[in-house]
Design a protein around this nucleic acid. Structure first.
Length: 301
DNA sequence: CTCCAGGGATGAT
DNA sequence: ATCATCCATGGA
């Protein structure tokens, strides 16, 4: 495969792809393979540059937002301890520019799912309903269009592991496919109006809407609050707070993190997710539950 | 086996 | 306006 090299200062490809904002890139050789829209691409990190499939340099540069002034953005973060630790840990992580529909659909499937499983659902949707794109000897699949998914059935989508999310994804795909929801034209709307339109779609609430605003519409103020971020906020910014409503948290984040809140949020999220130790079997309620493994497995008479 | 995951919609206070 | 419950599925 023919390769070209593009400048990419202040960029960490692996961190960006592992930060839970996009779900289909896979490690390949010394780099990663994935699709940007309908284009299959190979990307490999060098020191301050990227090796990229020839002809895809411009698409890669735009997709990974290599034009974002990352130094200035990070310098504008609040100076508290949690934020500084996240900023140090996440150096080079960028908020990328995803296609609207692909991002919206992916986050509709994300509800109450771990990143690993969101990736699995994305792969199933792509291989079953996406279009094959050649990359050297590889065959990658682009994310299926709304029109394509609108032709499927709820059972088709459940077969991709979507569970109860299948209904919402199908309903939203239909709205987008028929033009009732024109994702592209929404680019011109102010934040509040865009958020309202997104939240009107089945399976889209405040959190998913903010993810789509941040990862697809480049609204860098958008501050998605998921279970991880909520824990971080409560521990680091509101230790000992009795009743902390979601609305109060939302207002705090909007004001405290400000213009590039989305970047701050993504850094706090990635830092927490990657440094919080997985619940080892510490000590809690595990008294004598395993006294009879056979009975617990239903092996009694 | 149990716990929990980048939540949202719905119905009860 | 807040609060509780249910929703499917699979990784850890």
């Amino acid at each position: 495969m023919k390769i070209t090299e593009i400048a990419a200062p202040e960029f960490d490809l692996a961190k960006t792809l592992d930060s839970g904002q996009v779900f289909h890139w896979e490690a390949f050789g010394s780099g990663f393979v994935g699709t940007i829209g309908e284009q299959a691409v190979y990307v490999e990190q060098r020191r301050d540059s990227l090796l990229v499939t020839r002809g895809k340099g411009a698409a890669v540069r735009h997709y990974f937002a290599l034009d974002h002034p990352l130094d200035a953005i990070c310098a504008a973060f609040p100076g508290d301890a949690a934020m500084c630790a996240a900023r140090d840990y996440c150096r080079g992580l960028r908020i990328i520019r995803q296609p609207e529909w692909e991002c919206l659909a992916s986050f509709i499937t994300s509800s109450m799912k771990q990143v690993a499983h969101i990736r699995q659902m994305s792969r199933a949707l792509r291989t079953r309903f996406g279009e094959a794109q050649r990359l050297g000897g590889l065959e990658l699949f682009s994310f299926p269009s709304a029109a394509r998914l609108a032709q499927t059935t709820e059972q088709d989508l459940r077969a991709c592991g979507l569970g109860y999310r299948a209904r919402n994804l199908l309903a939203t795909a239909r709205r987008v496919a028929c033009g009732e929801a024109d994702l592209q034209s929404w680019r011109n709307l102010p934040d509040a109006e865009l958020r309202a339109r997104l939240c009107d779609l089945p399976g889209v609430g405040a959190k998913v809407a903010n993810c789509v605003m941040l990862f697809a519409y480049e609204r860098l103020r958008a501050f998605p609050i998921d279970v991880w971020i909520e824990r971080v906020l409560k521990q680091k910014y509101f230790p000992r707070a009795r009743k902390l409503t979601a609305e109060r948290l939302r207002v705090f984040c909007e004001d405290y993190f400000g213009e590039h809140g989305g970047y701050a949020q993504q850094y706090l999220f990635h830092h927490a997710r990657k440094t919080t130790p997985r619940r080892r079997s510490s000590q809690p309620n595990r008294p004598s539950a395993k006294l009879s493994g056979a009975a617990a497995r239903g092996n009694m008479a």
